[in-house]
Design a protein around this nucleic acid. Sequence first.
DNA 1: ATTTCTATTATGTTCAGATTTATAGGAGTA
DNA 2: TACTCCTATAAATCTGAACATAATAGAAAT
Lengths: 233, 233
Amino acid sequence: MTDQRNIGFQDIRDEVLNRIQTRIWPQGSLLPTELELAAEFGVARATVNRALRELADQGIVTRKRKGGTRVVTTPVKQARLPITVVRQTIEEMNAEYRYALVSRTLIDCPAWLQAKLGLPEGTQVLHLQCMHHADNRPFQFEERWINIAAVPHVADEDFLTVGPNEWLLAEVPFSNAEIAFSAVPATGQLQDFLSVPPGTPLFQLERTTWFQNKPVTFVRMTFHQGYQMRTTY
Amino acid sequence: MTDQRNIGFQDIRDEVLNRIQTRIWPQGSLLPTELELAAEFGVARATVNRALRELADQGIVTRKRKGGTRVVTTPVKQARLPITVVRQTIEEMNAEYRYALVSRTLIDCPAWLQAKLGLPEGTQVLHLQCMHHADNRPFQFEERWINIAAVPHVADEDFLTVGPNEWLLAEVPFSNAEIAFSAVPATGQLQDFLSVPPGTPLFQLERTTWFQNKPVTFVRMTFHQGYQMRTTY
DNA sequence: ATTTCTATTATGTTCAGATTTATAGGAGTA
DNA sequence: TACTCCTATAAATCTGAACATAATAGAAAT
C-alpha cells in the first residue's frame, strides 16, 4: 500500500491556478473543457466543475455556457474584510474592553437621515452616542441612529451595559449593510472623547444596515488616532 | 403540464436563510442533518450540501463533521471590497484619467522596507512616486517600492505612460496581498501633490504584495481629501 | 444580404450511491 | 478526577450518469 491520496478538487484547483500563474494558460486564453480536464486528471467532470467554480468565485476565471472557461484579462481581486464587533476586536488584542453610554435620546428623524434611509416623515429614531475603550484608552466613538419601527422593543433597552452594536447583532442578525470608509478631522465631541488635538486625522467607518429591505440603523464609528484596519487577499 | 420548476439548491439556500432570519432556527441552534433536509425538500443530499456550503461560505452557519450544521452565534459578516486599479475607479466616475510620473530611482532597500518584506541585505529596489488625476484634479498620490529580484525586467520600464499598478497587474497577476487602511495627516509632498493644507486628514491604503510567497512590492496610496471607499455586504 | 431555424457544444445543475475524514460523546483506564 | 481509546455519526468528497440551459455556428429560408 502506498500512502498516495487520490487527487481531489483542491489539487485540481491549485494546479489550474498554478498553470495560470506560470502563464501556461495566459490571461485571456481559453482553458480545456471540463471533460478534457477530467480526462487529464482522471476524475469525474463534477470534480473539475467544483474546482473551476471556486476559481470563478475568486474572480480568476470567467465561465460561460458553450463559451468555455477563460482566464480573466484584468483580475479584480476582492479583499474580504471581516466586520466584527468592537469588543471582539479589542479582546483579540488581549486588551481589556470597557463600554460607556454617553447619551441616549428619542428624537424625530433628522432630514438628512430620513433621506439617507428613505424613511417616511415624522419617524421616531433612537439616537445613541457611546465610547469603547481598550485598556482604559479611548478606542472608538460610536454615534448611532436606530429606526424604532424596524426594531420595536429597542425603546425598552437602556444600553447602559451592552453596546448597541452587540445588541442589534443579537436582535437583528444577518442583515445587509452598506459601508463607507474615510478619513475625517477630529472636531467637537471627537476631540474630547478620543483625547486628540483638534483636526487630528481619524479613521471613520459609516454603515447603513437593512433587514429584509427595511432600514434598521445608521452608525458612524470613529477610531482612535493611528488606527489601522487590516486584511489580506 | 404545470410550469412548476423543480426546486434547486438556491431555493433551499434561501429557505434555510429565511428560517434562520425568522428565528425558526435561532442563533447557536443545530440544523437538521443533510439527510433530513434532503428528505424534507425531496432532493438529493448533494443539493442540500451545496446550499448549506454557500451559507457556510457567507459565514451564516458553521459546519463540522459529526458536529452538524449550526447557526453562528455572532455573525461575522465579511465585506468584500473590490480592489481595482485607479484608472478604472476614475473612469467609472465618468471622469478623465490622467497619470504622471513624479520620480523613479533605483535604490538600496531601506531598512524598514527590508524588515517589512523580509528581504536580504543590500537588495536593490525601484522607488517610484506618481500622481493620478481625475478631471485634472489630484485624485491619488502613489508611492511604491518594487523588489527588482522578483520582477527582473521592471528595470527596463520607464513608467512614463503606464502606472506601476497597471504594469504590475499585467506582469504579475493573481498575487497575494496584505492591505491596511488608515487616516493620515497631509505632510511634506502630500500637501503639494494633493493640493491640501498641511495636516488635512487623508485616506491611505498600504498594500504589500507577494507572488508565490516572494515579496514583490509595497505601495502606499493616499487619496484626495474627502475620498470615501464604499462597499456593501 | 438578412433573418430564422436547428444542431451542437460546454457549462450548470441534479441525482443516487459510495467512500473518506473529523469528531462528539461514551466507555474504559490510570 | 483526568486521561486515553473507541465508535457511531455527520459532513466532505468523489463518481458516473443524466438532463437543463445558454450561446454559438451553420444551414435554410426569406
